[in-house]
């Protein structure tokens, strides 16, 4: 028996909106630790890892570890039917072939339940080693989204370079080139407006903008994004999910042939 009650149901809506275009089907894993997902996109270039810790739920009952295969587009369709202020409860029976999403309005005057069919998914689970990063950039998520969107109108790839001068996003296309430099800025009124660059050594990596733009669909989840870079390692683009967890996107770099 599984029963997870999330008062801030809009978080789950936002999570689904941010992954549904990247991954079609995925297994949600439920354990004492929390509600999690790890899935690769169909071309095995990008990976999404989600963790919503059990402490973040108002009520969290998971009698035994459960893996539920879901079509993310269908799950997003159902969660779209929840109001932004609704409390969302996820319910499933051990060994059952459905999951129920229950939506309660804050005043309890409307209660809806949506039952969705589960599916069997053969998913590969990848071991992600703890890595030391050469550079970690924390910046406003809306700024990062704007940069990725702007650059993708010029080119297909972005070179992200971190030096002591700051972080540079560059692209090149048929019509010309573009460079955007963001410097460290911690003298801001609100902490979410800060740009913080922790650099162990300079690093420069190239990534497909198509994927970066897809990751920025998680922007509504968090005011800040963290971009962790290391030579010839996948970049990690992380958005915190309130106080309860994170959504991390991994993207393999493009390499010189």
């Amino acid at each position: 028996m599984l029963e997870l009650r999330l008062v801030q149901g809009s978080l789950l809506k936002k999570v689904l909106e941010s992954v549904k275009d990247l991954v079609n089907d995925a297994n949600f894993d439920c354990s004492a630790t929390g509600f999690s997902l790890q899935a690769m996109d169909s071309s095995h270039v990008a990976l999404v890892a989600l963790l919503l810790r059990s402490e973040g739920f108002e009520h969290y009952r998971c009698d035994r570890n459960l893996s539920m295969g879901m079509n993310l587009n269908n799950m997003a369709k159902m969660l779209k039917c929840a109001g932004n202020d609704d409390i969302v409860t996820i319910k499933a029976d051990d060994g059952g072939d459905t999951v129920t999403f229950m939506f309660e309005s804050p005043t309890q005057d409307k209660i809806a339940d949506f039952e969705m069919k589960l599916m069997d998914i053969d998913s590969e689970h990848l071991g992600i080693p703890e890595a030391e990063f050469q550079a970690i950039v924390r910046m406003p998520s809306a700024e990062f989204a704007r940069i990725c969107k702007d650059l993708s109108s010029i080119g297909d790839t972005v070179v992200i370079s971190v030096t002591k001068e700051g972080v540079k996003f560059s692209t090149r296309g048929d019509i010309g080139t573009a460079n955007i430099v963001c410097r460290q800025n911690t003298t801001v009124d609100k902490p979410e407006d800060a740009t913080v660059i922790e650099m162990q050594e300079p690093v420069s990596l190239t990534f497909a903008l198509r994927y970066m733009n897809s990751f920025t669909k998680a922007t509504p989840l968090s005011n800040q994004v963290t971009i962790s870079l290391s030579s010839e390692l996948p970049v990690v683009v992380e958005y915190k999910v309130a106080e309860m967890g994170y959504i991390r996107f991994y993207l393999a770099p493009k390499l010189e042939e």
Partner: peptide, 14 residues
């Protein structure tokens, strides 16, 4: 010329 590397080069299957 640049080639997109797959993730499985970096992460192993569990």
């Amino acid at each position: 010329r640049q080639e997109q590397s797959p993730l499985t080069i970096y992460f192993h299957n569990l």
